[in-house]
Every structure is written in C-alpha cells, then in structure tokens.
C-alpha cells in the first residue's frame, strides 16, 4: 500500500513537511505543491537535509508550475528531487494506492 503524500505549506512556516516525512514509509512519494515548493530550493540547509534523509526510501517531487511562480528555477532544486507538472501529479496519484494531504 504505497501513498502519495502532498504537502502545500512552506517548511519554514509550518511543521507539515516534518510531520509528513516522519510518517512516510519506504515506497511512498512526497510531492511539494503551492508554498511547500520553497522547501525544495537547493542551498537551504535544514530542509534540504531533511529531504535528502528521506530519499533513500521515498521519492520526492515538486510541482514545476509552483516553482516557476515563485521564481525558483527547475535546475535549482535539491539534488534528487524530481520536477513534475500537473500531469505528473496525476500520474503520481494514479500510481500510488492512495493520497494523503498534509494540510
């Protein structure tokens, strides 16, 4: 039973990404959308480390249109994080057994 976790709030503002990563299991995917994409920018310290620490087990994705809207180039995201569009979001939702929103 794999899960697509979505996080939509900045990890600098709220604890939802931390909480999500603390509950995600190997084989799950985590997708950062809306304000959460600011956490995907490379060069950050704490958040980048948290994402890297989760990556051996989980795949981490970030919504490209939300990155672009916030002036973060797609090539400036934390290494290993994949950039997807809305179609990619749909694919992630379809290929995992369920989705869980960390609102």
């Amino acid at each position: 039973m794999s899960t697509l976790h979505t996080v939509n709030k900045s990890p600098y503002e709220r604890g939802s990404l931390d909480s999500c990563l603390a509950h995600a299991l190997p084989g799950d995917a985590v997708l950062l959308i809306e304000d959460a994409v600011v956490g995907a920018r490379a060069g950050s310290t704490r958040v980048a480390e948290a994402l890297k620490a989760a990556m051996p087990g989980c795949t981490i994705h970030v919504l490209g249109p939300d990155l672009a809207a916030r002036g973060i180039p797609a090539d400036a995201v934390v290494e290993g994080v994949s950039v997807v569009d809305y179609g990619g979001f749909v694919d992630l939702a379809a290929t995992h057994d369920k989705s869980q929103a960390w609102l």
């Binding site: 939509n8 959308i33 809306e34 304000d35 249109p65 569009d85 809305y86 179609g87 979001f89 749909v90 694919d91 939702a93 379809a94």
Partner: peptide, 19 residues
Amino acid sequence: HQASDTAYQFTKAALEKGH
C-alpha cells in the same frame, strides 16, 4: 488560498489524461 486553483489544474490534467 491556492487550493481551488491547484484542484482545478489537477482535475483538468486528469481529464486530459483520459481519467
């Protein structure tokens, strides 16, 4: 909130993919 916009884009993309 962006929630409704994101939901709209998601829904549109899902329909475009034939879901």
